[in-house]
Each structure stands twice: as C-alpha cells, then as structure tokens.
Simulated scan of single mutants.
Amino acid sequence: MLKIAIIGAGRVGESTAQFLAESDLAREIALLDVREGAAAGAALDIQETAPLLGFDARLIGDTDPGVIAGAELVIITAGLPRKPGMSRSDVLDKNVEILDSIITDVTREAPDSRILVVSNPVDVLTYRAWEKTGWDRSRVFGQAGVLDASRMAAFVALETGLSTRDIHTLVLGGHGDAMVPMLRYSGINGIPLHHFMDQDAIDRIVERTRHGGAEILALKQTSSAYDAPAAAIKAMVEAIVLDRRRVLPTVALLNGEYRASDVAMGVPCVLGAGGMERIVELDLNAAEHEAFMTSLAGVKADIDRLK
C-alpha cells in the first residue's frame, strides 16, 4: 500500500505506526493529531528506528489534515481515553464529536480510502462513521474482536502453559462487558478447551477477557492498553494490504446477518484488498444467540442516543 494514515498520535496511534512501519506495510505512514508537535514527534522518533529495525517506510506527522491526503487506509485512534472506573460508553458523547470532525477531514482529503475505527466505543463509532460517510459497508469497519480474541488466547496460554501458536479463540458481539467469547469455536490445535481446563478455569478466562481492557487500565492508572490494540490493528491491516482474505472478528455493519440490522457489531469477516469483503454468519445455538442479542441491545441503546 502506498499510504496509510493514522489519526490520533497517542499511545495506540504511535504503537500502531511503529508496528506498521516495522512490517513495511506502506511506503508512507502519515500521523495526524490536534496537539502541536505530537504527530511530528512520534513520526520522527519511529523514523529514527528504521536503520536499526530495517524498514523503508517514510513517516510524517502534522496537525494539518492535509497530511492524510491520498491515504488508501485511514485508521482512527483519536478520542477521549477512559479513566479507571469508566466504561467505553462513558466516553461516547465527546468521542462522537471528535469522530464527526475527523470524518469531515477524511471525506475531503482521502475520499477513496477505507476506514478502520479503533476509538471507543468502537461499535457505535463505526456505525457513526459509516452513517456520516455514506460509503459502502465494505469500506468502514472497526477493530475489537481481534484484540478480544488475542486476550482470551493469552489467558488460555497462561492457564495451561501451552504455546500460543496452537491456541485459537473467537469473540463476537460488542466491545464491552457483554462481549461474547465463543467457546464452541475456540480450542487448542482443534481440541476443545475443556480437554485442558475445568469449567471454573474456563469461566475465569471468559470473565477476564470481558474485562481485559479495564484490568490493564486499573493497573496502569495513567493509560489504557496500547501495545495489544496496536498489534490487533496490524493484523487487520496486514490482511487488507497483502490481500490475505483472513477470517477475523471485525466490527461490521449488519444488514440482516445474525438477525440484526442497522447496527455495527463484532462478527467474523473476510478481510482482504476490498476491505471488509464478506460477513461470515455462524449458526449460533440458543445460549450464544441470547448472549449476542444482549450485547447487541447495549450497542443499539448507545446508537439510539445519537439519533
């Protein structure tokens, strides 16, 4: 890809730029931030690692939205961060205001791009970005499930002592406390989790996954997670840039899938050169469907606040 833009040069945005640069996924990576010097400083700092890490990507940063002109993919990480005790929905009103301004810049400077939303609450903001752009849903999607599934897999590895390379997990639903870890679709090299752990351990992992971001926030106090989110973004970007057509949990606009419409939710999707190319609809059992609908109701309630 010739150019990727990252809007928001905070911790998630800067870590994302570093991961993308190291992987040479774009010839140019542009960072945009309203704070004077923040984007330029982050870009220069990362650029100076190029000789040591061996990448050729060129990084630029500015406060001028013109810096993202011509980007083929725009990653939105800007927004008011959570503080300890806050939910993702608590930052909704301010972050919608920030997102609306960003979308104005994106549609003007990079009208042919695809948008990957990361800012919280990501399900609602993905919906808002799609609504404001009027673009096809293949071009506007969000990151949540890749991060949630990675957290779940990490917790399984810590519990069992087994290699993360063999652990595969899946998390659906909204990116919040009502997310839906899919135990039927998770396992270790094709073997169900219950062969390695008892139900109490599995239940602990499910709860820890649901509160994974809050756990890190409570420990750090001064910041939320940024390395794991950036790694999740990189996995999605790589699938798109290299046209890998990977099946990854993605916040996508639903149009009848999973018996839901007019909402953005985390579901398995095929990611490739066309962006969010296809939604993979799983056959949920009664318990899974009930949990999914509970998660959906929370996202719907936040979307309705915006109307």
Rank of each mutant, 00 (worst) to 15 (best):
E36I: 00
A235N: 06
I115S: 01
L31Y: 01
P229Q: 06
E159K: 09
R210T: 12
H168T: 09
S223I: 09
R82E: 10
V96L: 13
T164F: 12
A26F: 05
P84M: 13
E48G: 05
D198A: 10
R128V: 10
I188E: 08
V263C: 09
D203Q: 07
V91Q: 09
L242F: 09
K300A: 10
A110S: 14
E159L: 05
R151P: 01
E36T: 05
C269M: 11
A178Y: 11
A30S: 15
V124W: 08
V91Y: 07
E215D: 13
A201P: 02
E14T: 15
A228V: 06
A218T: 15
G256T: 05
T164G: 11
L306I: 07
T164E: 13
V117W: 07
V124N: 08
T160W: 02
G13E: 08
R208Y: 03
A69P: 03
E257P: 00
L99Y: 01
F19P: 01
T222I: 14
G213E: 14
L53Y: 14
G161K: 06
V270H: 12
A69W: 07
I240T: 00
A110Q: 03
I102E: 09
L59T: 05
E97R: 12
E290L: 12
I167V: 11
M1G: 02
I303E: 05
G70H: 12
L254G: 04
M276N: 13
K3L: 00
A287S: 13
D198F: 08
E72C: 02
A38S: 11
D24N: 15
L125F: 01
K300Q: 12
A239G: 06
T294C: 07
D166E: 15
P111W: 03
L59R: 02
M86L: 14
A30E: 11
P111I: 01
L219W: 14
G66L: 04
A43K: 05
M293F: 12
I279P: 10
A235Y: 05
G173D: 13
L92A: 15
V124C: 06
D148I: 07
T107I: 11
T160K: 05
G190F: 11
S150I: 04
A291W: 04
R108C: 06
P65I: 10
L53H: 14
C269A: 15
K132F: 11
L52M: 04
Y185T: 01
A291Q: 13
I60W: 08
L242K: 14
I103V: 15
V118I: 12
A218R: 14
G176M: 03
L25P: 00
